[in-house]
Nucleic acid binder design. Structure first.
Length: 1098
RNA sequence: GGGCGGUUAGCUCAGUUGGUAGAGCGUCUCGCUUACACCGAGAAUGUCGGGGGUUCGAGUCCCUCACCGCCCACCA
């Protein structure tokens, strides 16, 4: 042992992973070295995500943590896959939220924004932003997000503000922005208009008041109903349905409005539902959207009764100055006094609340700026309908998005606030007596100078200008985010290269607010949908499955959990919970103790990885994976090595496939499974004895190589999910320079190693080089190479030839390219003819086994050993050959295939034994041809290993059942009539001995009478496991166990035989299913037989 | 009033194109075997919300009902 080196590599690695220092270290290192700084000049395939900008007012909540974890995983993955990656961070100015904060501060100081004035107010807001606006951004850093901080943006930055100006002016000049007097949602709390989206409808228990309005001529009255009595002060008519015969005689008559005694007409309008209430509707055109429409249709007066703060104005008559809710009660009281209240009904109805202000909004008419939606929406819808762009994941959200776009109304974009982008419109107030009125002429321009010039040209030198006081809706600037952050309207290199972005990751709650606004704006200004995919995730719910919200005060602080368990643990927890499509996830949490079982489980996982790595590091003699070299496919490579490498390869493919399809949760779970179970519980345990061998022993070296190779692979695969711990271990493992990062290493590529033969490819992998930072030149083609494994197979060329049938069948399996079979097999047919002849001949030779071995028929080599040595196998093989031949012939009859593939396969074929190829072909799925009844090929590695593992488990189980001391070595007999199984057990003999604590292991076809005496017995598959017991065994316990096992197996037998006795099943189910059932039945019956036999012997 | 999602082991959830029900946590029994007790080994647990239907076969497809949750909607 080279003690010194080993010590140097694993300097005092503690047995528990310590997250906080490690996380801080790498977060600092990544940021200081600008590891994630994007460089469009490096070319390659771009991958860009813009952050959904959090509010500057915000602080990190679980939703941010979740979303950032998702995005960071995607981004890190694609970066490692060799894409030129940019994740652009930034924040949003949150007009209303900031205004609310500043207004509150002013109020506390006994002043108002009007008193301090616009300039001082804005200074204050900027100051606030400088002090508090960084909070959320710094908290994001603690999540380990791999953003490019050099490109951080804020919606009120110079550049983004220019983009807003540009967008506004262009839309205005194209007639898509207009100013007008319309009904808007008015929030009395923020004293601003808000858009439809900022209104939340809440169902509340209210009342429906029925009032009697007398006819002016005294001939009677009508009864109307309302949920908002105070609005009657603004009534200018009463409507009935034109087809309502009850009231047709009243149409055209006048009513005397109570209290104000105004004369108002009765008129007919289709909008009125005659079945609701009395069928008479009071109409308040200035305070109800429906009434507004009716008012316009019937030329009714529009009487506004409200001030901006929600109190009644002079039109409120006796109630002037009252708050709207006081007025409501006062009106009711008044009418009750007059006897005009017919009924007060308990009534549940929805009331529109202001999202931000948390008070009911009032519909009222005011002069605002609007974006004309229809032309924009048409274009955006066309992208969706004609190009399926953007592509929603999960797809169901596309429908929601579509419906919304199709029903959009014009968007009110002006807000009566100061914090935000001031509307670039200047009023020629000199034309309207020095004040801004609805009819004051205005010019729209980028700057005051420009406005002045325009105005002078229009109104002369003496014109006086005043800029519109209002600011734009925050979402107006957010709508430009994906391209304004990349430099638009300038044609920057970033914009040219990274736009349109790859994926937008966001919550469903924001599809309308943000996603649709971006697609509307982007399709108009850039002619493109700003992202290819929209990945919609669910919400993080609290431990009671409640939506986390400020008002419910049930938020779970991610930073608290990070402090306790580490960022990687939290990230991993959130991501592994994501299953299926955009489902909400629930976070387990003990509020009293600030503990979370599920995050703790992830922390334990991190710790497991830590310790497994520690074990590996302690056993590499101080060598790095590079120094050790990749696992060589030589004699010292064991079954276990091949198995873990095969599993690893499959994991690589699976992980990539899942992430590519946004299956992050599934990928995370599979990694957990592989690391903990396959790698730690089995591989590491199996490899321990080999590591005790002297340094330099080939089997030890092979083990070290495999350990190092797989560990490094695991770190890479897991890095996007758990970036900090993997970066830390990777540095220790590889002894990488400080400026090198795992985050910038190429993601693993399946090597197609460790298959049926021990040979392992030695060639260098096609490595996609990440393009971030200065570490390397980009490799745009390598990414493509990964996506087409055929290409990488071709590259690996000659070194792989010995394995080609395995590779080929894998390739075919993977790509379902059945066409290939037909042509490949064309030349193989010849070989079949030969084999047929050979086998017939062999059967004719007496003492074949001996002769074969003696002569050492090199010609048939491994094939012969596996298939021809025993006569039962020969029979089986012959059957499979003829089946194969039929299949091949059939394929050829139907065959048509790609010429290039053919050429490739044929050239490969010439180099190899066609017989072996056929053997492999049996693995290929066939949809139309029944498989021959008996499997002939040797068990594949994974099946072999599963058998070994199951056998070990069975022995362990028996040991426990028999209360055999854990450390005690015992003898075990394994019996199977199946040669392939015996072969596999033979191969795993030492594993079974090591892990099941077996001294003497006997593998036999037939049991001797001796072996059947006093024994514990178990069954796995068709393998009988016997533990001869020297001493006395507990017969009752044994009987109980056997009976239990028997009951279970018997149930299986019933189930299968029942099915197989059903003629319809046998005749109608697919042959392979019937076959599987037959085999399962046979196995179960054998198990039954064994168990019964045992019971009888007791 | 429309639309969408959910209902599977005590808890949280997986279950790919229909083909003998799975994981984690928790529980129980062993175990300090020099990576890890934030660990290891073993075990138990489900008429897959109810009811119909299609099928040789349904957790998986269709219909229907129930419950939970979300989104949209101008019923005063």
């Amino acid at each position: 042992m080279t003690e010194t080196l080993s010590a140097a590599t694993t300097i005092n690695l503690p047995s528990q992973y310590e997250p906080s220092a490690t996380e801080a270290k790498w977060q600092g290192a990544w940021e200081q070295t600008q590891a994630f700084k994007a460089n469009p000049s490096q070319g390659g395939e771009p991958y860009c995500i813009v952050i959904p900008p959090p509010n500057v007012t915000g602080s990190l909540h679980m939703g941010h943590a979740f979303e950032s974890a998702l995005i960071d995983t995607l981004v890190r993955y694609h970066r490692m896959r060799g894409r030129n990656t940019l994740w652009l961070p930034g924040t949003d100015h949150a007009s209303i939220a900031v205004s609310t904060i500043i207004d509150k501060q002013l109020k506390a100081e006994g002043t108002t924004r009007q008193e301090v004035g616009r300039e001082a107010y804005l200074n204050r807001a900027w100051q606030w932003k400088a002090e508090s606006g960084g909070t959320i951004v710094n908290q994001l850093r603690r999540l380990g997000v791999s953003v490019d901080w050099s490109r951080e943006r804020f919606t009120m930055d110079e550049g983004l503000s220019q983009a807003v100006l540009e967008a506004f002016i262009r839309l205005y000049e194209e007639g898509l922005i207009y100013r007008g007097n319309y009904m808007v949602n008015w929030c009395p709390a923020s004293q601003s208009a808000v858009s439809d989206l900022e209104v939340e409808n809440k169902e509340i228990d209210g009342h429906l008041w029925h009032f009697r309005y007398p006819l002016s001529d005294g001939s009677g009255s009508v009864v109307v109903a309302t949920t908002r009595p105070e609005t009657m002060l603004g009534d200018t008519g009463v409507a009935v349905n034109p087809n309502d015969e009850r009231y047709s005689h009243l149409i055209g008559k006048m009513l005397k409005l109570p209290i104000l005694e105004r004369e108002i007409p009765i008129f007919a309008d289709e909008l009125v539902d005659p079945t609701f209430g009395t069928g008479c509707v009071k109409v308040t055109p200035a305070h109800d959207p429906n009434d507004f429409e009716m008012g316009k249709r019937h030329n009714l007066p529009f009487i506004n009764i409200l001030n901006k703060d929600g109190t009644l104005n002079e039109n409120g008559g006796p109630f002037e100055g009252m708050d709207r809710f006081e007025a409501r009660q006062a009106v009711v009281d008044w009418l009750q006094g007059d006897g005009a209240v017919v009924e007060i009904e308990e009534y549940k109805h929805t009331v529109p609340y202001s999202d931000r202000g948390k008070v009911p909004v009032e519909p009222l008419i005011s002069t605002q700026w609007f974006v004309k939606i229809e032309p924009l929406a048409q274009r955006t819808l066309a992208f969706l309908d004609e190009e399926q762009s953007p592509h929603f994941v999960p797809e169901r959200w596309a429908k929601v998005y579509r419906d919304w776009l199709a029903n959009l109304k014009d968007w009110c974009i002006s807000r009566q606030l100061w914090w935000g982008h001031q509307i670039p419109a200047w009023y020629a107030i000199s034309e309207t007596e020095g004040e801004v009125r609805d009819n004051t002429p205005f010019v729209v321009a980028k700057t005051e100078e420009e406005a002045k010039a325009k105005a002078i040209a229009q109104f002369g030198e003496q014109v006086q200008l005043k800029q519109d006081d209002d600011v734009l809706d925050t979402w107006f600037s957010s709508g430009l985010w994906p391209f304004s952050t990349l430099g638009w309207p300038e044609q920057t290199q970033d914009l040219a290269f990274y736009y349109p972005t790859a994926t937008l990751v966001t919550g469903f709650d924001i599809i309308f607010f943000w996603v649709a606004r971006m697609t509307l704006m982007a399709s108009h200004f850039t002619g493109q949908i700003p992202f290819k995919d929209v990945y919609i995730h669910g919400l993080v719910r609290d431990e009671n499955n409640k939506k986390m919200s400020k008002s419910a005060n049930n938020g779970i602080d991610p930073l608290l959990l990070i402090d306790k368990y580490g960022t990687d643990a939290l990230r991993y927890t959130l991501i592994r919970e994501v299953a299926g499509a955009g489902q909400d996830i629930r976070l387990e949490y003990n509020r009293a103790a600030d503990e979370s079982k599920s995050v703790e489980a992830s922390r334990n996982f991190a710790n497991k990885l830590w310790n497994a790595s520690r074990f590996v590091l302690l056993n590499l003699d101080g060598k790095t994976p590079a120094q050790l070299g990749k696992p060589q496919g030589n004699d010292s490579t064991e079954l276990a090595d091949q198995w873990i490498l095969t599993r690893f390869d499959r994991l690589v493919d699976q992980t990539c496939d899942q992430i590519d399809h946004y299956g992050l949760g599934e990928a995370a779970k599979a990694l957990y499974e592989f690391i903990w179970s396959d790698f730690c519980d089995w591989y590491i345990e199996l490899v321990k004895p080999r590591l005790r061998q002297p340094e330099g022993t080939p089997t030890r070296i092979a083990a070290q190589q495999t350990l190092a190779y797989v560990l490094e692979g695991i770190l890479k695969l897991l890095h996007p999910f758990m970036p900090h711990i993997t970066e830390e271990i990777w540095h220790t493992l590889t002894q990488a320079e400080a400026h090198q990062f795992l985050a910038l290493q190429p993601y693993p590529v399946a090597q197609n190693v460790g298959l049926a033969t021990p040979t392992i490819s030695l060639e260098s992998e096609p490595s996609p080089e990440p393009t971030n930072a200065d570490t390397s030149a980009s490799g745009p083609s390598s990414y493509a190479a990964y996506q087409a494994p055929a290409a990488s197979l071709a590259q690996t060329g000659l070194t792989l030839l010995s394995d080609w049938p395995d590779l080929l069948s894998r390739f075919i399996l993977r790509y379902q390219s059945e066409l290939l079979i037909a042509l490949l097999v064309g030349s193989a047919l010849i070989a079949i003819a030969i084999s047929d002849a050979v086998i017939s001949t062999l059967n004719a030779i007496p003492f074949l086994e001996t002769i074969l071995e003696g002569l050492g028929l090199i010609y048939l080599g491994q094939f012969a050993y596996k298939n021809l040595l025993w006569s039962d196998k020969r029979t089986v093989f012959l059957r499979s050959l003829s089946a194969e031949k039929a299949k091949i012939l059939k394929s050829i009859r139907e065959g048509s295939a790609s010429d290039t593939q053919t050429a490739q396969s044929e050239s490969l074929l010439e180099e190899n034994s066609a017989v072996k190829a056929l053997q492999r072909l049996r693995n290929i799925k066939s949809h139309d041809e029944p498989l021959p009844p008996i499997a002939t090929e040797p068990l594949d590695i994974e099946t072999q290993f599963t058998l070994i593992i199951d056998t070990i488990r069975t022995i362990r189980n028996l040991r426990q059942e028999a209360s055999i001391k854990p450390g005690l070595l015992i003898d075990v007999v394994l019996q199977s009539e199946n040669g392939r199984e015996r072969q596999a057990l033979q191969a795993g003999q030492t594993y079974i001995q090591d892990l099941a604590k077996v001294a003497n292991l006997t593998i036999t076809e037939q049991l001797t009478e001796d072996a059947q005496k006093q024994t514990m017995v178990g069954v796995t598959g068709t393998v009988q496991v016997l533990i001869p017991l020297a001493g006395v065994i507990d017969i009752d316990a044994l009987r109980a166990k056997l009976e239990k096992d028997l009951a279970k197996v018997d149930k299986e037998v019933q189930s299968f035989s029942g099915r197989l006795q059903n003629e319809k099943f046998v005749s109608q189910a697919p042959p392979e299913v019937v076959q599987v059932a037959r085999e399962s039945l046979a196995e179960a019956e054998l198990q039954c037989k064994i168990l019964r036999d045992r019971l009888n012997r007791l």
